[in-house]
């Protein structure tokens, strides 16, 4: 028997699709990563674990950066804030707190080495699991 992996509530603001799910793509306001900014693929197009990934805020949306935080939480963001439990990331993805500021920032990273395209697809597969947080 393996021990249950501890779960963390993850928050991020997204542009939305007409169906209400996060919009997927390579931008800071989308469900995805910007190559060379959020994570850098190697020469063969692969991304590695523990090298960065899509930024998220753990635990409490009050720790979102101010440009993503809504006015009700003292920020100036207007995009909807979504939440997801880290145990909903699946086997290809994993959550890692940012060692520099573990209570305020973290990464949804590839769990194993994979092509950037596969990592982006794995992120997109979580779209339905993200739920809007009323703030």
């Amino acid at each position: 028997m393996t021990a249950a992996k501890p779960t963390t509530k993850l928050f991020r603001a997204f542009k939305t699709q007409p169906n209400g799910q996060p919009l997927c793509g390579a931008a800071g306001s989308m469900l995805g990563v910007r190559p060379g900014v959020d994570i850098t693929p190697d020469g063969s197009g692969q991304v590695q674990p523990v090298t960065g990934g899509m930024s998220v805020t753990p635990g409490d949306p009050v720790y979102l950066p101010p440009f993503l935080r809504p006015a009700s939480l003292g920020g100036h963001g207007t995009l909807p804030v979504f939440a997801l439990d880290s145990n909903a990331l699946g086997e290809k993805l994993t959550y890692r707190p940012d060692p520099a500021k573990p209570t305020k920032h973290g990464f949804v990273e590839p769990a194993i080495a994979m092509l950037l395209t596969a990592y982006s697809a794995a992120l997109a597969e979580t779209a339905a699991a993200w739920k809007v947080v009323p703030l």
Partner: peptide, 30 residues
């Protein structure tokens, strides 16, 4: 939301380049 997304992109790049002290200064300003 496309225009707001463009702003998010610009703020994000600025935010990443800031020290924790500079980020705190922005929070105080806000």
């Amino acid at each position: 939301q496309d225009r707001e997304g463009e702003y998010v992109e610009q703020f994000d790049l600025l935010w990443r380049g800031m020290s924790p002290q500079e980020q705190d200064a922005v929070e105080v300003y806000l």
